[in-house]
Design a protein around this nucleic acid. Structure first.
Length: 240
DNA sequence: AATAACGTCAACCGCTCCGCA
DNA sequence: TTGCGGAGCGGTTGACGTTAT
């Protein structure tokens, strides 16, 4: 694939943004939005590449960015989500309103990793462990007894591949066998209860079918996270 | 006071993903 | 089905600030 020339080869500016550049970018986006990042700097009159503009906007200039130090609750959330998702910073950021993936990544590397290191001396605790979903979330049989109703499974076609876990994956295999993972669930569970705005009912798979198919782990993690939020989970998870 | 060591974080790089023709 | 281009992601860098010696 032919790559587009990088900024310096095009005579574009790199490095820290000036207040004037910030002002121009913000002003332009407020008026026109950002339908095309590549075209934006030229149209706005900035000597920057689109990539740089997008980064500056999403990580610093966006009006909904939350400033200031991370709260204890936010840090705990990051730690828990990192256990679940690994280095998927954008996915973690999506759970922390006003925080950017870059910010979270920095906080993780500068603060949280060290904190965890001091609390867990075993090297095996320093990075995400290969998991089974049930093990990772410490789910047990009491959960479904407490639940008044049931739930289905996120439906993913068998041919769907999961490339999301190609690096820094927290799972050993890209696919997991649902019959093993969900062995503790019984047939009484109904389909709809755990569908939410992100998971339409028709995206959910009846338990009987789920038991005999594999599913995309990435979607599975999303499912498990939603499940934990809704049930309260075996651990103290943050509410969103 | 000087400077070395360390910490922080904004920004860049290179890769993959995804939509479209 | 394939190739292209734009967008987004995670890893890394380097400038700058702070602390320790």
């Amino acid at each position: 694939m032919v790559r587009s020339p990088c900024c310096d080869k095009m005579g574009l500016k790199k490095g820290p943004w000036t207040p004037e550049e910030d002002r121009i970018l913000v002003s332009y986006i407020q008026q026109h939005g950002h339908p095309n990042w590549r075209a934006l700097p030229k149209q706005a009159g900035l000597l920057r590449c689109g990539k740089s503009c997008r980064l500056r906007w999403t990580n610093y200039l966006r009006p909904d960015i939350k400033r200031g130090n991370f709260t204890r609750e936010e840090e705990e959330t990051i730690v828990k989500l990192h256990e679940l998702l690994g280095n998927r910073w954008s996915a973690i950021a999506a759970r922390l309103p006003g925080r950017t993936d870059n910010e979270i990544k920095n906080v993780w590397h500068t603060h949280l990793k060290k904190k965890l290191k001091t609390h867990h001396h075993s090297p095996s605790n320093l990075k995400p462990q290969p998991i089974t979903l049930s093990k990772a979330l410490n789910l047990d049989h009491t959960l479904h007894r407490q639940s008044p109703s049931g739930f289905g499974f996120p439906l993913v076609s068998p041919q769907t591949s999961s490339s999301e876990f190609s690096s820094n994956a927290t799972v050993k295999d890209e696919r997991m066998d649902a019959s093993e993972t969900f062995a503790w669930m019984d047939e009484s569970f109904r389909l709809e209860e755990f569908s939410d705005e992100k998971s339409r009912t028709d995206d959910w798979l009846p338990l009987s079918k789920a038991r005999s198919c594999s599913f995309n782990v990435d979607d599975g993690m999303e499912f498990w996270y939603n499940l934990l939020i809704k049930t309260g989970g075996p651990q103290e998870l943050p509410e969103f």
